[in-house]
């Protein structure tokens, strides 16, 4: 994504795979270039009980796209009379993005969830909907390079929910503290078959 638009409003997102669980996290900053305006800007949206979607990028597109995706998820549920699966959602988001191939939504979406067999799934995609599914972690936003560095070094496979929470939190905090366009607190969701653990984190306030 063009870094001009990527860093206009700032913000970063991150998702990680654990043992029978997934975690998804974001910072809370909303800014205009170097000026911070909001410190409670949501970048993670609940898709179903077991799927969350996170988006970093241009704030207006995050809001427009999250509303559009919410509408499509609701329509899917009504038509199919069942909850959407993570992979289905991923390709639904991807095709929504590709529809705007030549005037794209400037977002980096991540999807984290558990499927009907409670098998964890994460993926990210670029602004025109090229999906990448991984079996460790995915990152996006203004601090993507920093996140890639911390995740690559701190991540290990098959973490239990509490350990996964600590790993994703440490990765996110370390990365956003080195990025002026991200920070001002963070939100972490850990999805397990039984429940969703949601916690907010303190970070530097500058």
């Amino acid at each position: 994504m063009s870094s001009e638009i990527d860093e206009y409003n700032g913000g970063s997102v991150l998702a990680m795979l654990g043992k029978n669980c997934v975690a998804i996290a974001s910072d809370k900053r909303f800014g205009m270039k170097l000026m911070t305006l909001g410190t409670e800007f949501p970048k993670i949206f609940q898709a179903t009980d077991k799927i969350y979607i996170a988006m970093a990028g241009l704030a207006t597109d995050i809001q427009t796209l999250s509303e559009l995706i919410r509408y499509k998820i609701n329509m899917y549920k009504l038509r199919e009379e069942r909850e959407i699966e993570p992979t289905t959602l991923a390709y639904m988001v991807a095709s929504t993005l590709y529809e705007r191939r030549f005037s794209p939504y400037y977002v980096s979406p991540l999807i984290a969830g558990l499927d009907k067999n409670n098998k964890p799934y994460i993926c990210n995609m670029d602004l025109i909907g090229c999906v990448t599914t991984t079996n460790d972690f995915v990152v996006g936003g203004a601090a993507d390079d920093c996140l890639l560095g911390t995740c690559e070094a701190l991540y290990e496979p098959d973490l239990e929910p509490e350990d996964l929470f600590e790993t994703i939190s440490q990765s996110l905090i370390s990365a956003v503290d080195r990025n002026a366009a991200s920070g001002w607190g963070a939100v972490v969701h850990v999805l397990t078959p039984e429940r969703v653990i949601t916690r907010t984190l303190k970070t530097r306030q500058d």
Binding site: N9, F30, A59, Q63, T64
Partner: peptide, 15 residues
């Protein structure tokens, strides 16, 4: 509520 020309919306205590 603060809205810019791009359509970004935030709710804040002062703006």
């Amino acid at each position: 509520y603060w809205i810019d020309y791009l359509g970004s919306l935030i709710e804040i205590p002062f703006a």
